[in-house]
Nucleic acid binder design. Structure first.
Lengths: 255, 255
DNA sequence: CGAGCCAATTTATCTGGATTAATTGGATAG
DNA sequence: CTATCCAATTAATCCAGATAAATTGGCTCG
């Protein structure tokens, strides 16, 4: 048998552009907010065609490194480092399409505890205020069913604020990812039953207690409160899923 | 100020193709291993140009849903669901470029424990054998320094096998992701010091004890063994990073 | 001066074809 | 019969330009 001729993979021109931009980011030659050269200039720079530059910018956009706008003064700008695009990309991952609440909570129960304790150490007054505001919004007497629903979803935002405050980017990413995943489960899979809105009161109560523990810098209290909060939330989630499943069975009894 | 005219985003043709393929996956009209129509047929089907089909297939490839091969009989094939592409994409995420061992282990310490306990419940004899083989390879007396290094890296494979055995895809993904991340730290950042290879012996010892606990289906033992194993591994990792940093300081004293 | 229209700028998407590369099966030479 | 080469198939990459859409700033008209 003849040896395979060591496939020399042609390096894509668009990848060269992507790598150059990334290098300029890690070497801090460019900072968030800086504008990249526009299409025409990049074409001149790399001596390539429009499509090639476009492919490079598209790749950078998908990775959440730049955002582009049309119009005069538009173009591609470096965006702040953020964990959001990674979370978005992962949530679209088809392999996760059959996850249920129990599976998400198996992770969330351990992640959120770590997260809360870590975030506590570096919470700024701005972040503490954001947490207070979130609680105020969620605790308000709702004036409509849609607001009620918004409040339920906003409860997750409390945990997102903590994630953003966390000094460990990996933990921050995991926290946000799980929150977003849960939000998808609630919103898209209709795991929301207005009659069970009172569950929200329990969540808000936990959030209030956590706030106090944060202000006291009481890691032990944060740990046990969050653990209890998650345990509670899991029970509600699983119960809701059961009701929703039941409802579907009633809706479509003849499969 | 005039209201913005509710930007109607033109639907991309390539996205339509991508969505169609994804739909055919979730509705199980196509299964892993099935071959997609080739470029020309897709062009005829969607009445579009080469570039458009190409963009769609590229997107599907990046998401790890299809793989393509050239040549007769080649083309785009649906691949088995796997968490690998997601892990690969995430590892390239620039936001994680400054992670250190301690940050990875903060998560790993809790994830691996959950993972091991969950995987234990569904370990097949094939997987148990794979674990045994892995231990045998790692415990062998190395005949060269490169083999020594390979053994050190193979120790992570023990944990990857557990991840693949785990019934919770989210947990499986996290486990593999952290293992791969750690492997990057060891391989790319050269956090490997041959003189410290004896750390591997401790790892193998833990793996052996875990095997016994798996066979006994002793969840309590698995939990405490894995917790101890991770705690130990973290100490070694942090120590190694210190030595490597020291080495770099000596190599490049005049910055 | 102000509201609204228009033109310039710039990206977004698609096109259709050119060239290159990888793979495979069959043809051919020894 | 075997090893080697060649031709057909198919994707990979790139190109150059056409058309559409979004944004902004200036211009016009009342």
């Amino acid at each position: 048998m003849t040896l395979k001729p060591a496939r020399r993979k042609r390096t894509k021109l668009s990848d060269v552009i992507v790598e150059d931009v990334k290098r300029s980011i890690v070497t801090e030659q460019m900072k968030p907010g800086d504008r990249l050269p526009n299409e025409k200039d990049l074409i001149d720079l790399y001596q390539c065609s429009k499509g090639t530059v476009r492919e490079a910018l598209k790749a950078l956009e998908v990775e959440g490194l730049v955002c582009t706008r049309t119009g005069p003064g538009g173009g591609a700008y470096l965006v702040e480092a953020s964990v959001e695009p990674a979370s978005r990309a992962l949530r679209n991952f088809l392999h996760f399409r059959h996850l249920d609440g129990a599976q998400v909570y198996q992770l969330r129960k351990v992640i959120e505890v770590e997260l809360a304790v870590t975030a506590m150490a570096s919470l700024t007054t701005v972040q503490l205020q954001a947490l207070e505001d979130n609680i105020a919004f969620c605790a308000k007497i709702p004036t409509s069913e849609s607001e009620q629903r918004d409040q339920r979803i906003a409860e997750l935002e409390f945990h997102n604020i903590l994630a953003d405050a966390c000094s460990n980017p990996l933990l921050a990413f995991m926290g946000r990812f799980l929150n977003d995943l849960l939000r998808d489960l609630v919103v898209l899979k209709k795991a929301y039953v207005p009659e069970r809105h009172q569950f929200g009161d329990a969540n808000v109560a936990y959030h209030r207690q956590l706030m106090e523990a944060f202000r006291r810098q009481d890691a032990g209290a944060v740990r046990s409160l969050m653990a209890e909060h998650m345990q509670d939330a899991e029970s509600h989630m699983v119960a809701l899923e059961g009701e929703v499943a039941q409802k579907f069975l009633l809706d479509f009894p003849h499969d």
